[in-house]
């Protein structure tokens, strides 16, 4: 286990490091997480108007955020940022995450099926994701709908993407249901890696580090011969946290704050905003590995 200052510290006990432009600082940043207590309060979003594109509107007042009228409290949202890391540095990232999160990692093996509506169904085309968790003794199925993201000047001020997202666990025949309803398989992916789940400042954060593979055979999840990595040598890192119309600002701040801890190894940004690998990754990984080598793992 990575030890910081002789004892493993949880993220909620420590303060965010200052973002450092060079490696020397990055290294000290990794270790400096032990020093200061976290009482950092972020400047609230003060945009007057945010828009979530799938028929929901958020109005946010100045100062303390308030959401009005058109968005129902039932609307589920998530805050999300993504980044990439070279596979050779994943072990270092895992060590860092283990130390920061204070919880064991969970293995991840998910079959993702992305379905789209046939042309004549619905006034607009729609997309649905069917996920099958292959790590469970019996494959567990989930239906996920990812909606529009928050837009507007206020959304631009937040460094994480806020979007609507609804999930529902379902019985194993849910794929057949959507086929019968007029949805067709667009593509399918196998996602393999690991995840950490933990709480930070009221946010329930999940970090996943995984690689995506395309399937050469329909539903070919069994054999590695049946799938090809989408980006060989690169793994996707995703930080997500469920939120609601009432608390998304605080959740976004928590996610954003967490991302700073990972800065020497990778840069996380809104999905679709590619920032590539960070130049400090190799040195930061080396220092983390040597650091972990000298401690009791």
């Amino acid at each position: 286990m990575l030890r910081l200052d002789g004892s493993r510290r949880r993220l909620d006990e420590i303060s965010p490091p200052v973002k450092s432009p060079n490696l020397a600082k990055s290294h000290s940043t990794l270790i400096s997480v032990k020093r200061v207590r976290l009482n950092h309060r972020r400047r609230p979003v003060t945009a007057d108007h945010h828009l979530i594109s799938d028929h929901t509107t958020l109005d946010i007042g100045k100062g303390k955020e308030k959401c009005y009228n058109q968005i129902s409290s039932k609307v589920s949202m998530e805050c999300v940022v993504q980044g990439i890391i070279e596979t050779q540095h994943v072990e270092a990232l895992e060590i860092l995450l283990l130390g920061l999160c204070g919880v064991p990692k969970e293995s991840l093996r998910v079959h993702e099926l992305i379905l789209k509506s046939v042309p004549n169904l619905g006034l607009e085309a729609s997309e649905i994701r069917i996920l099958c968790d292959l790590m469970q003794p019996e494959p567990a199925w989930t239906v996920r709908h990812v909606g529009g993201s928050m837009r507007g000047a206020g959304a631009d001020q937040i460094s994480v993407l806020v979007r609507t997202m609804v999930e529902s666990k379902a019985s194993k025949n849910v794929l057949r249901l959507f086929y019968l309803l007029g949805y067709k398989l667009d593509h399918e992916l196998l996602r393999v890696g690991f995840a950490f789940h933990f709480h930070l400042r009221g946010a329930q954060i999940t970090v996943t580090v995984s690689s995506y593979s395309k399937m050469l055979k329909l539903h070919g999840t069994e054999s590695t011969d049946d799938n090809v990595p989408v980006s060989p040598g690169i793994q996707m890192v995703e930080v997500t946290a469920p939120a609601s119309a009432e608390n998304y600002s605080e959740v976004a701040a928590a996610v954003s704050s967490f991302c700073e801890y990972l800065a020497p190894l990778l840069h996380l940004s809104k999905p679709g905003v590619s920032t590539g690998v960070v130049p400090t990754a190799a040195a930061a990984a080396a220092s983390l590995m040597s650091f972990s080598g000298s401690t009791n793992m």
Binding site: E167, S168, L180
Partner: peptide, 27 residues
């Protein structure tokens, strides 16, 4: 629960599936 009688299909899901169906706007 969703039941498609003609196709002899019954599916069990979390109640949030209703919100997903609303968002899809296909049914």
């Amino acid at each position: 629960y969703f039941v498609l009688r003609g196709q002899r299909l019954v599916v069990e899901a979390d109640s949030t599936i209703q919100t997903i169906m609303e968002k899809l706007q296909s049914y």
